[in-house]
Every structure is written in structure tokens, then in C-alpha cells.
């Protein structure tokens, strides 16, 4: 005699196991010798000064009237946002002191929402108003430039005596 509980149990298990039919034999990566690497996006700058140069160039290009078609514009704006997001990490991977790093960090925190707002406009089918944010963008960039180029060039760090440190 089948009770309500039996039906529920069978239904639950059917709901859970049916997707097995479409699962295939093995999930991705079921291998013994998978060669693994980290994907570094091609537009990721190597350091803070390069990031600032890239930001400047890309922003100017996006601020041009009829800079690109709508989908291409969105991709480029997204890349610009990503470069802004990488700023704290790129600055952190240098000898920048904490006070100056904080300026970079706060600059990134300020710039990202500005650009995100424009990205949201583009996603809704409107034109981005890059000129409207240009003044604030330029001011922040000037601040970053002053920090990045006031830094001494990469010098040997303590601990350089460690074997393998020599390039």
C-alpha cells in the first residue's frame, strides 16, 4: 500500500536524479594531467603607472563623440571599470607606503561607481555621458599620477640575498 510519504519520497528522488540523464559521463576536468594556468586578461596593466596611462587613453577614446558602436562601447567601458578595480592590487604590488596606497584605494572606490553608473546607462540602451564625469575623472587621475611618478624605481628589496633572487 503506497502512502502519501512514499509518493513524496519517490518524487523527490526523481527530481534529484533525473538531471543525471543529461550529465554525461564525467564532469569537466576529470583527468589526471590537466595543465592548469591562470588566465590574465590582455587588458590588465603590469603596474600602477601603466594602469594610469591606460585609464587616461581609454577614457579619452570613450569620451569621443560616436566613439564606438553600442556593444563595443559597453565592452570597452567594462574593461575600463576592471582597470579601475585592479588599481589597489597594482599599487599594493609595489613599495608604495600605506598613506599613499590609501589614496589610490580611495580613488578606485570613487571612480568605480562613477563608471558603473555610465555602464548601467549603456546597458539600458542610453548613451553614456562620459563628458559629465570627465572633470572628476581627470582630477582623480592627476592625484594618481602624482603618486605613481613620485615613487622611486623598483629597487632591490631586503632579502635579496636569497638564492634564486637574481633574475
Amino acid at each position: 500500500m503506497w502512502t502519501r510519504e512514499n509518493y513524496i519520497t519517490v518524487a523527490l528522488w526523481a527530481a534529484f536524479t533525473l538531471p543525471l540523464a543529461g550529465w554525461g559521463c564525467a564532469p569537466q576536468g576529470m583527468s589526471d594531467d590537466a595543465s592548469e594556468e591562470h588566465h590574465i586578461p590582455p587588458h590588465k596593466p603590469p603596474d600602477l603607472p601603466s594602469a594610469i596611462v591606460q585609464l587616461e587613453r581609454r577614457f579619452i577614446a570613450l569620451a569621443q563623440p560616436h566613439a564606438a558602436t553600442q556593444p563595443e562601447f559597453a565592452v570597452r567601458l567594462q574593461e575600463l571599470i576592471e582597470i579601475v578595480r585592479w588599481l589597489p592590487e597594482l599599487a599594493g604590488d609595489s613599495d608604495l607606503p600605506e598613506a599613499q596606497w590609501n589614496v589610490v584605494y580611495q580613488a578606485a572606490q570613487r571612480l568605480e561607481p562613477l563608471l558603473q553608473a555610465q555602464y548601467a546607462r549603456v546597458q539600458r540602451g542610453h548613451r553614456a555621458e562620459m563628458r559629465a564625469v570627465q572633470q572628476r575623472f581627470d582630477a582623480t587621475l592627476a592625484q594618481l599620477r602624482a603618486i605613481a611618478w613620485s615613487q622611486p624605481l623598483e629597487e632591490d628589496l631586503p632579502g635579496g640575498s636569497f638564492p634564486g633572487n637574481q633574475p
Partner: peptide, 20 residues
């Protein structure tokens, strides 16, 4: 499970990841 078999099974965007 062979060595490293799950290294790519849980990638973001893989719809089978929670299931696996």
C-alpha cells in the same frame, strides 16, 4: 578520483558545478 580530477569541475559559470 584521479589526482586533480576536480580542479576544473567547479569553475564559475559551469552549470554542473553545484550538481557535481
Amino acid at each position: 578520483l584521479p589526482s586533480g580530477a576536480l580542479s576544473r569541475a567547479m569553475n564559475g559559470g559551469n552549470p554542473w558545478a553545484p550538481w557535481t
